[in-house]
């Protein structure tokens, strides 16, 4: 028996909501996500946790993207709770509107969640997101980060890792995938707004994810939770490996798990045993060109440096904290 599994037939403490027979299942079966979709899993985990924390009083605002398309296409709607989709770039603003309406009706008990992929969050919806943050509107924004535009066929986004192969950053004799000098860090941008709560989470650590969402839901003001969701199709791995890949990303330090309050990192989830980024990268075809015989070792060491920096910055080594 173990506390690391989602459930435990003996103990009731440290068991995830996802292991509960009575979990809300806010997103129903029959949705059209691909096999092994990390985002579908993350959405159920996150929204179920939010639902529990808010006593079932949740309204969802969804940006255009995979999640929107696979969860709600006439005549089939997978959502069990009120949900609205408007546009690709405006989900945070729509959520601000819903928040304003509910605040007007003195219904602060109803919690509003806006959600979108990295495309809508990092790129097209950045303006609206920043506006929602700086006004400190009472909205929890969840970004499901699969590091490219998957719905349209894997094009580069602002969240795409350096040297990634995407449909718009194909490696060739001149380029090694995505330009390493590009991209941004939205959790840090969110923190720079000084909003009450920012956290990163992953489907590789559901206990942590649920706790963060539950905490985030209960805070007033603008909140941001960034969830790492591996995409079998876009990243090039077997659908059965989704959770494994997510765990590798955490373990190598490329996806640091932390919490920040009012712009300051307050907590990070240490890594049990740090692994090399290679172990994470080579499991995915989007990085296969970095492992070809003729490939330069520079991209790998560049990515390793990012991971090392994360480990240092967020104090991810066990026993060493940056607090």
């Amino acid at each position: 028996m173990s506390s690391l599994t989602l459930g435990n037939r003996i103990k009731s403490e440290n068991v995830t909501i996802q292991a509960s027979r009575l979990r809300p299942n806010t997103i129903s079966s029959g949705h059209r996500a691909c096999q092994g979709c990390g985002e579908a899993l993350a959405a159920r985990c996150a929204i179920d946790a939010a639902y529990e924390a808010a006593n079932g009083k949740i309204i969802l605002v969804n940006a255009t993207g995979c999640l929107e398309v696979f969860s709600c296409a006439t005549p089939e709607n997978a959502w069990k709770i009120p949900w609205i989709h408007s546009l690709f770039g405006n989900a945070p603003a729509v959520a601000s509107g819903v928040a304003a309406a509910l605040s007007n009706q003195k219904r602060n008990d109803i919690r509003i969640i806006a959600q979108g992929g990295d495309g809508s969050t990092y790129d097209i919806g950045m303006g609206c997101l920043s506006g929602m943050f700086e006004r400190n509107d009472d909205v929890l924004y969840i970004c499901y980060d699969n590091q490219a535009y998957m719905n349209t066929g894997v094009q580069r986004s602002g969240a795409t890792l350096p040297f990634t192969r995407t449909a718009t950053t194909l490696p060739n004799s001149k380029y090694m995938g995505n330009d390493p000098q590009t991209g941004k860090n939205v959790p840090q941008i969110a923190m720079a707004h000084g909003i009450p709560y920012v956290a990163t989470a992953s489907i590789g650590h559901i206990h942590d994810l649920e706790q963060k969402i539950a905490k985030a839901v209960q805070i007033n003001g603008a909140r941001y939770v960034h969830i790492h969701v591996p995409c079998p199709l876009g990243w090039g791995f077997e659908p059965s490996k989704t959770v494994k890949i997510a765990k590798l990303a955490i373990k190598c330090g490329l996806f640091p798990l932390f919490e920040a309050e009012n712009g300051k990192v307050t907590k990070s989830t240490p890594i049990d045993e740090v692994i090399a980024v290679d172990d994470y990268l080579k499991a995915q075809r989007r990085f296969a060109h970095l492992f070809s015989k003729s490939a330069s070792p520079d991209p790998l060491s560049f990515l390793q440096k990012i991971a090392d920096k994360n480990i240092e910055k967020y104090g991810l080594k066990k026993g060493i904290s940056n607090e």
Binding site: N90, V94, A100, C128, G131
Partner: peptide, 12 residues
Amino acid sequence: MAALSVAIGSEA
């Protein structure tokens, strides 16, 4: 964009 989007949200 946000102006009308907020109105979309509140109206919805």
